[in-house]
Amino acid sequence: MSMQDTQASETVGSVFVDDAKFSVRSLSVRYGEDLAISNVSIDIAKTDVIAMIGASGCGKSTFLRSLNRMNDTIENCKVRGSIKLDNVDIYADKRDAVPLRARVGMVFQKPNPFPKSIYDNVAYGPKIHGLARKTADMDEIVETSLRRTGLWKEVKDRLTQPGTSLSGGQQQRLCIARTIAVSPEVILMDEPCSALDPIATATIEELIAELNSKYTIAIVTHSMQQAARVSNRTAYFHMGNLIEVNETEKVFTNPEHDLTESYITGRLG
């Protein structure tokens, strides 16, 4: 599918905000010659849980990955435009992206604990970022992170067991604990619940609401209901274009763009 010739459409809705954590301007992302994100501009507010929705292949993951330069790891992926985090362009120089990824953490679709103990999974990030000098400090980071994800009670007596010994929902919370252990400012989540049952999903959603008091959150989801439940803003992508950004309530009761309406009501656009 080539989108080269498609004129980038004007995004409708409330695209920009006053307290922007991220300011994305004229972002285009290519894989080789193929345009995956086409001239997208949007602000993500400090206080946002922003949901990215849209059909498979519309560029949600690509957009999310550009926010912490995960795309750098993909050969032939070219990023144009500017993305500012607290007013500083994250692509300005080709510096090491590791510090950025400590500030902007990511949780993936499939829980992917390292093949290490539960404790070491959480301690891994703080260790490589040099956040804890003493063992006691590290213990505290591990405990706080596990507590914040509601996992502490369930695992405190088995911290030395492998992370992979946990259930899927617990593994995903472990991955979130691992992400917040390095005290990020933003958490990116790419379909974090798609491999989980409804109870585990509800636990993660509850966690998202709780984490939002400290962190900016951007979440990609294929579940309209999940987007409606957890987010305060919703961004709808269609074939690499950002069609609409609005308050979640507006998007799900009275969207501005016909394409958004078709997508969320399950109509053929």
Binding site: M224, F252, T253, N254, I264, T265
Partner: peptide, 8 residues
């Protein structure tokens, strides 16, 4: 779980 005009 209808949305938008369906919900309305």
């Amino acid at each position: 779980q209808p949305a938008a005009s369906d919900l309305r």
